[in-house]
Write a protein that binds this DNA or RNA. Structure first.
Lengths: 240, 240
DNA sequence: GAATAAATGTGATATTTTACACATTCTTGT
DNA sequence: ACAAGAATGTGTAAAATATCACATTTATTC
């Protein structure tokens, strides 16, 4: 009885963090809960590599992950940032054959990651249409976001790209406190530059300018948009 | 009896073109076949707009479609090219709320497109785990492709981007005849430039150079890689 | 098939962005 | 708290790319 109760609450707690599991019947949740592996990572730890054979899907329970893709010259682009409730490596599902992971995943803020083997997750997907539907929804959303970011990276100049990426980060990682937007994501300028595919020096210059204009502030690798209203005004104006 | 027979063959014919339907039970196929709408389009016709409310999912039966995304300044990027058997606008599935299409779809080679309303397709997905699985697989593949292209657009110089995109197009649209790779896709240089996010002049210059080197040839909007082996050798060498 | 429109090629120039250099400022581990 | 390493800011020079201009070629339409 005691065991049953803690198990249910553990499932429930996990549930609340991962949206795709929200409509699952309790028995499926128990199976997943039994199969899933919890793993702790420190900052800087590599979770998966794009050169490694894909073995499963990952769910962020806490902490943050950057997904990067390298090219032949060794330069890299951050393709996506994941936080609590997000899923990654789902692009390998049902892609039979020895496929590698779609990107390299590195912890940028320590936390717990849940792992489910491809086989286990695929089986659950076949048994639970609700789960499959949630995955399709989630992947669709990712697809939309990616194409928008791709367009901006391809077509905008450094200043505008930077502003737009700041806006995106604020949207996903921002906490607005009295018109100050705290981007709760530890990120160096160096990393920011690989988010939009430009040199760190160029980003540094844009940030200097924004700082001079009193639009942003950086405290311990955390960007703060000091006046969200003003920022949005400048941003909208820039896009016209 | 006669009717039954033609219906089955029509389903079968359609089936063979769209991979996600391949494992569907016959009764589901019949339902889909009944609900699906066939539409013909001429070259240049707009099928969907990114500013229009999403109503359904599209399947390319014949012809070719370019999917573009505009930014606020009106510049556009080709996000993906679709051919026979491909699906588009799937990113809207299960995203309740009045979402617009993820991109604008324009016919670049005339053909037939099948349309299935979001509701009908979502219903089938809930009833057929096999179909849902195929969608997840398809979307995963798209996700992989997109992130790779994004990385290349962000990090490579114009010459290398051009080469890499030619290689991708050859992969998807190429017909190799005696070491000559015919890219069976009508594409102006102007359009090619919006595929990699650079100016048409820059692409024109790269193409001139490639033509001088005897690597490519353009005949009626069709790019031909005149010596596939040589092209691959130059390409691999460039990446080192 | 002639007329009109659209796309292309290329030189010259302007603009943007990167690359390099190096002093300075943060971080981190002990 | 201190030393070592990492990250940052910024001037200058170099390189890449975009823009403009316009002649030329290629499609399209009636």
């Amino acid at each position: 009885m005691e065991n049953q109760s803690t198990e249910v609450s553990a499932i429930h707690e996990f549930l609340s963090k991962v949206e795709v599991f929200k409509d699952l019947p309790p028995q499926s949740l128990q199976i997943i809960d039994k199969r899933i592996k919890k793993m702790s990572f420190n900052k800087g730890d590599k979770i998966i590599s794009e050169y490694e054979r894909a073995k499963g899907v990952f769910f962020v329970h806490s902490g943050m992950v950057k997904l990067t893709k390298q090219n032949e010259q060794g330069n890299e682009l951050i393709v996506c940032m994941k936080k609590k409730g997000d899923i990654f490596a789902e692009a390998c599902l049902f892609n039979y054959g020895d496929l590698t992971y779609p990107a390299t995943g590195t912890m940028i803020k320590p936390g717990e990651i849940y792992f489910l083997s491809t086989e286990d997750f695929e089986q659950e997907l076949l048994l639970n249409p609700e789960l499959a539907v949630q995955m399709i929804r989630y992947m669709g959303e990712t697809l939309r976001d990616l194409t928008s970011i791709m367009r901006d990276i391809a077509l905008l100049d450094v200043y505008t790209k930077t502003m737009k990426m700041l806006e995106r980060l604020a949207e996903k990682f921002g906490a607005n406190r009295c018109n100050r937007m705290y981007i709760e994501l530890p990120l160096t300028i160096q990393e920011f530059s690989t988010l939009i595919g430009t040199s760190r020096e160029s980003v540094s210059r844009v940030f200097s300018k924004l700082r001079k204009e009193g639009l942003i502030d950086i405290k311990q690798k955390h960007i703060i948009i000091t006046d969200w209203c003003k920022f949005c005004a400048v941003y909208k104006n820039k896009l016209m």
